[in-house]
Design a protein around this nucleic acid. Structure first.
Lengths: 221, 221
DNA sequence: ATATTTTTTTAGATTAATCTAAAATTTATT
DNA sequence: AATAAATTTTAGATTAATCTAAAAAAATAT
């Protein structure tokens, strides 16, 4: 029905679309599929004929409901296999992606359901990413506040619970953006302020007041 | 290195070659790959260029050592995955072939070795077929005599331990051929003779003397 | 031993997925 | 708003795996 290649395109369009919330550009897809824009154009026309995407020339692409269902099935398989590789076969969480990229295309509904059961119906993969259920429904994400994170932990910023412009402008000014990686370096006992590092940049001080309003996702290490 | 398709050809050539012991014909390969002879000719030329087979036009094909090593790796993976599907996921032994046909092409040495360990280094798959080790070495086959088989068991005839023409002619006469499926229906206590059935054919009486000389492989059910 | 049949190979097309180079469209800049 | 720059699409090729139809070789039967 859908080829290995088509499934990869759908998965990538799903991910890009989830990030931006709007149409996905040809170039963005080309970058992740490791192909050229010309190849992407061809494939988008084909996926469009198959009713898997809505595609208007020069206007970017979006998944149809059908396309999203297919993408979610692939993502479900990918993440379940990652759990299997880590929990059952003892791989490290950073060694499993490439293998799961292959396993995600194995075609058998029965296999997926039995694997899910064998693994105890996990809700998150070893990277903390949520595993869609049979119907494509994602589990609730269990984000934490940065203020709850222990020293030494590595997290990704996934949102804020305070939405005032002042607060958001402040975040932009100190370099805290959605998706940035944060390592908690130090916790000051007296005022609960944090010293954190952001990738290469010099360390940053964050007050408890600010930390309470930052939603983060922890990254296993 | 070797594509999905090439691996399937090598696997099929291995199996045909193991049965006949000599060169494999183009048509025989075409039948099992579900393609036409013309396609097989093309592929044999290609596999020959890659040093995976020895192929002389019109003279049939044989695996090289390299080709056999690749085929055995695929067979190893196929049979290990079948054990996984039956032992861990609870599939019936007759439901797993199609899924294993896909899983056998997943490319990761590390995965195969860890799977083998996870399964407890099984020597035979759920159909009783031997699983080659990492180096492509098949375990000793543990055939049984028909006389040792319990009532209700389903076996396949794989050989004889008496090779006299009289005996072999007798077998042919009563319809016992290599590869035929036998179900043990009844055991007569007083002379240890058996009543067995062979597929659709009417039941057959076999003396203990004959049963002792029939090598069979049991089939899990 | 010749003719017929069967098997196998070659020649020429087809499909899926990709590419490069050129043309078309959209976005950004003066 | 006109032009320049960037993005996207089309046109035309390429590669892997397959096909049909025709030619060549081998096996079989008279």
């Amino acid at each position: 029905m859908t080829s290995f290649t088509e499934e990869n395109y759908l998965k990538i369009i799903y991910k890009l679309s989830a990030e931006t919330g709007s149409e996905v550009s040809t170039n963005a897809v080309a970058e992740l599929t490791l192909t050229k824009a010309a190849s992407v154009s061809d494939m988008l026309r084909k996926l469009s004929e198959k009713q898997l995407v809505n595609y208007q020339k020069y206007q970017g692409v979006r998944l149809t409901e059908l396309g999203e269902a297919v993408a979610l099935k692939v993502i479900r398989k990918h993440r379940l296999w990652e759990v299997f590789l880590v929990e059952k076969l003892g791989f490290n969480w950073d060694e499993v992606h490439e293998i799961a990229e292959q396993l995600e295309h194995i075609d058998s509904e029965e296999l997926v359901e039995r694997l899910d059961e064998f693994l105890g119906f996990p809700k998150f993969d070893p990277h903390g990413d949520p595993i869609p259920d049979t119907f494509g429904v994602m589990p609730e994400l269990r984000y934490q506040n940065l203020s709850e994170i222990a020293v030494g932990q590595h997290v990704v910023m996934v949102g804020v619970s305070e939405h005032s412009p002042t607060f958001l402008q402040y975040l932009a000014k100190i370099g805290l953006t959605l998706g940035c990686h944060i390592v908690v370096k130090e916790l000051n006992e007296f005022d609960k302020s944090l010293c954190v590092s952001l990738g290469e940049a010099p360390s940053l001080f964050i007050s408890h007041e600010v930390a309470k309003n930052l939603l983060v996702k922890s990254i296993k290490n």
